[in-house]
Amino acid sequence: MNDMVFTAIVIAIKILVVLAVTLGLGAYLTWYERKFAGHLQARRGPTVVGPFGLLQPLADGLKLMTKAPIIPRGVDTKLYYMAIMMALVPAIMLFAVVPFGPSFKIMGHEIKPIVANLNIAILYVFAMGSMAAYGTLFAGWASNSKYAFIGSLRKAALIVSYEVVLGFAALSVILLAGSMNVFDIVDSQIKSGVWYIVYQPISFILFLFCLLAESGRVPFDIQEAEAELVTGYNVEYGGMKFGIFPLAEWYLNVLALCAIASVLYFGGWAGPHIFGPFSGFIWFLAKTFGLLFFVLWVHWTLPRYQAKDVVEFAWKYLLPISIINLVGTAFFIYFKG
């Protein structure tokens, strides 16, 4: 009885911590991206609000919440509001299977810093990623506008194609590790001493492409190509309703997928113990943010593909490569024993 209460309290605390951290981190990622983009483009990012512009996300949030809610005529109101939730909820749910560090002991109980230690964690990640398509589809249809419609159709095609490739790419790592549980994957990397990126560089590159496509970043941000469709499927949303879409898609999605990528390929929290008892957590965060830095760097450098090229790229080039990679890995494991 005591055990169950304790577990319930622990889970409640974990959920609260993860929610608070991810939403706060999502907001501050906007600051990080704007500063980064600014210095990359020979200018400064936000500097006025707070020292170094650190209070800018709070100002932005306040501004978005106090804007006049303008809803165009002829929208399908149920779908219009449901689209926002369908975009935000899967992105936050992705954080339920992200392991933040090694397991530690408090008061004799072993606690794993993960909200839900599923045995099919990676499959859950794929499922939540696919659910993100609903948000855009509903938003595009409910907006009663041609631009939104075209944007959401493009995004739907994109997500469908890149989910398949994502599945096959991650499957190679799962074959090597032998399980879909994130803790097992990290433990097998720590045990063998070699991170999986050494064994699976092709799979990592494919995963990176899928990461960029799933979260709608250049070179795959066809659904909101500004010169063509203004802001794509969220063109009829204003105020905080608009603010939720980039938060969920550009920041939370990217953060979660970067975390999963660092678990799958870079060994999660593996690293030399130079920071004392928290070194696992620090290494994990460092790897995630390093990957995030790379994603932002690519976003602000490369041009974007055309809609038909993106889908062609996924089905004609990435999918065969990922299948060949998978088959090769399978043979390698079979013959190596």
Binding site: Q41, A42, V218, D221, A225, E226, A227, T301, L302, P303
Partner: peptide
């Protein structure tokens, strides 16, 4: 031209 095709930084460099 580059901005329309997605390369967002070339715009700022050209303006410098």
């Amino acid at each position: 031209g580059a901005l329309d095709l997605g390369a967002l930084t070339v715009f700022l460099y050209a303006f410098r």
